[in-house]
């Protein structure tokens, strides 16, 4: 992982893909009957369908980072090294950042389609709870001074929280109606109404955002590692 974080090719790929998604996502017109290359023109969504290239990939990036954090926590408990702990913490922190971005983009989208920034939607609440859980994780980390103890407790909380959270995310939306596509008789975006044009931009955007989030998380983790080493040397 350490070597992977230092490589350049996927960072360049991230920027290229995101450039492609941003330019293309705004350039391509909606379907009005004549265009060859167009996005689907859906009733309520209208032009805001372009948010699909931001909102959804950001959630994917968050889930991806939190998953990495979870994996590093497991691997810490089975074979403790302080590096694994800093990986778990860094991925979780940048994961929260992308979660917040996902919430912001979602709120703006909700305002223009559902009429309110916040609706009582199980997925929204799930997202909010997820943010709370991981903020609690950060508070737990900051409340313990001893490095080894902190790593141990944080890892065990992280595993506990992630499993509970995933169970929640998968179960709860099935209980009540959701305004989100594909639930409760909403016009399905199922398979995202992804017509091929949208897909052409959606997949690059997903990979691009995930890679960008990895880049940021990598920098954050490496900076923290350097800081820790400098502190140790001082002592």
């Amino acid at each position: 992982m350490n070597n992977f974080l230092k490589q350049y090719w996927w960072k360049a790929l991230a920027i290229v893909l995101l450039l492609f998604a941003i330019i293309g996502g705004l350039w391509v017109p909606l379907y009005h009957g004549t265009e060859d290359l167009s996005f689907p023109n859906l009733a309520i969504l209208n032009e805001s369908i372009r948010n699909l290239l931001y909102h959804v990939p950001m959630w994917f990036a968050m889930v991806f980072l939190l998953l990495l954090s979870f994996i590093y926590s497991i691997s810490y408990l089975s074979r403790p090294t302080i590096e694994k702990d800093s990986y778990a913490a860094g991925f979780a922190e940048i994961g929260i950042l992308f979660g917040a971005l996902g919430i912001f983009t979602g709120m703006i989208w909700a305002k223009s389609t559902w009429g309110a920034f916040w609706t009582n939607d199980p997925k929204l609440n799930g997202a909010a709870i997820g943010m709370l859980i991981y903020l609690a994780y950060i508070i737990l980390r900051s409340s313990v001074d001893d490095e080894v103890k902190r790593a141990k407790l944080a890892a065990s909380y992280n595993i506990f929280a992630f499993v509970m959270y995933i169970a929640f995310i998968f179960v709860i939306p099935r209980l009540t109606d959701s305004l989100h596509p594909g639930n409760g008789g909403n016009p399905a975006f199922s398979s995202y109404d992804l017509d091929n044009t949208l897909r052409l931009f959606f997949y690059p955007a997903t990979i691009g955002w995930i890679a960008l989030s990895m880049w940021m998380a990598g920098l954050w983790i490496r900076a923290n590692n350097i800081k820790r080493k400098l502190d140790e040397n001082e002592i």
Binding site: L132, I133, A136, I139, L140, S143, R150, M164, Y165, A167
Partner: peptide, 20 residues
């Protein structure tokens, strides 16, 4: 308790998880 915190920490850690 292991982290040496008070019961407020238990509340902070537990309440988000108890919502489901």
């Amino acid at each position: 308790a292991k982290s040496g915190g008070n019961s407020a920490l238990a509340v902070v850690l537990g309440f988000p998880l108890s919502i489901p």
